Computed example of a mutant assay.
Amino acid sequence: MARGRSSNQLLVPEARAVLEQMKYEVATELGIQLPNDGYYGYMTTRDMGLIGGNITRRLVQIAEQQLGIRI
């Protein structure tokens, strides 16, 4: 595993910009200020978890809609 870097790779590299935009949208909706310099080391684990969890929830909803799944 790479040190200091995520080993996760996107299957569609063009999706990175969309995910970044989604991160800022979710943070704004939750009232969390993201750092302008891009360094997240001072962010709390709780805040980052809230953002990540909400992004995951939103992505699952999008996938369900595209598949026509109703829960």
Rank of each mutant, 00 (worst) to 15 (best):
N8H: 06
Q65L: 07
Q61H: 14
I71F: 09
E20Q: 14
T45Y: 14
Y42A: 15
G52S: 13
A15D: 03
S6A: 12
L67W: 14
I55H: 02
R5H: 10
G4T: 02
G52D: 05
E20T: 12
R57K: 13
G52Q: 13
S6H: 03
G31K: 11
S6T: 15
G53T: 08
E29T: 09
Y24T: 12
T45H: 12
T45M: 04
L34I: 00
S7V: 10
E29C: 13
L11C: 09
D37R: 05
R16T: 00
I69Y: 12
R70N: 08
I32M: 05
I51V: 12
N36H: 14
I71S: 14
L67E: 15
I69E: 12
Q65H: 09
R57T: 01
P35N: 08
L10Y: 06
T45Q: 07
A27T: 00
A2W: 00
P13H: 12
V12C: 04
R5T: 07
R5M: 02
N36M: 14
N8R: 02
Q21T: 02
E14D: 13
E29R: 14
T45A: 10
K23R: 14
A2E: 07
R58N: 11
G38M: 03
P35M: 13
G31Q: 07
R70P: 08
S7H: 00
E20P: 03
V60W: 07
A17E: 08
E20M: 09
L10R: 01
L34A: 04
E20N: 06
N36P: 15
A63W: 00
G52V: 05
T44N: 03
Y24I: 11
P35L: 10
M22F: 06
R3P: 03
A2L: 09
Q61W: 10
G53A: 01
K23Q: 12
Y24R: 13
I69H: 11
R57F: 05
T44P: 03
M22E: 10
Q21H: 11
S7N: 00
Q9P: 02
L50F: 09
L67D: 14
T28F: 02
P35A: 12
P35T: 04
T44A: 05
G52L: 13
R16V: 06
A27R: 08
E25H: 04
G4L: 06
P13R: 06
Q9D: 10
Y42T: 13
T28E: 07
G53R: 07
L34M: 06
M22N: 09
R16N: 05
Q21C: 04
L30I: 09
A15L: 07
Q33F: 05
I71T: 13
Q33T: 14
G41T: 06
K23T: 15
K23V: 13
G68Q: 11
L34H: 04
R46Y: 03
A15T: 00
D47E: 14
P35E: 08
R3D: 02
Q65A: 12
R3A: 04
G4K: 05
R46T: 15
I71G: 09
A2R: 01
Q65G: 01
S7C: 08
M48P: 08
I51K: 04
V60M: 06
I69L: 15
A15E: 11
G49D: 13
L67C: 12
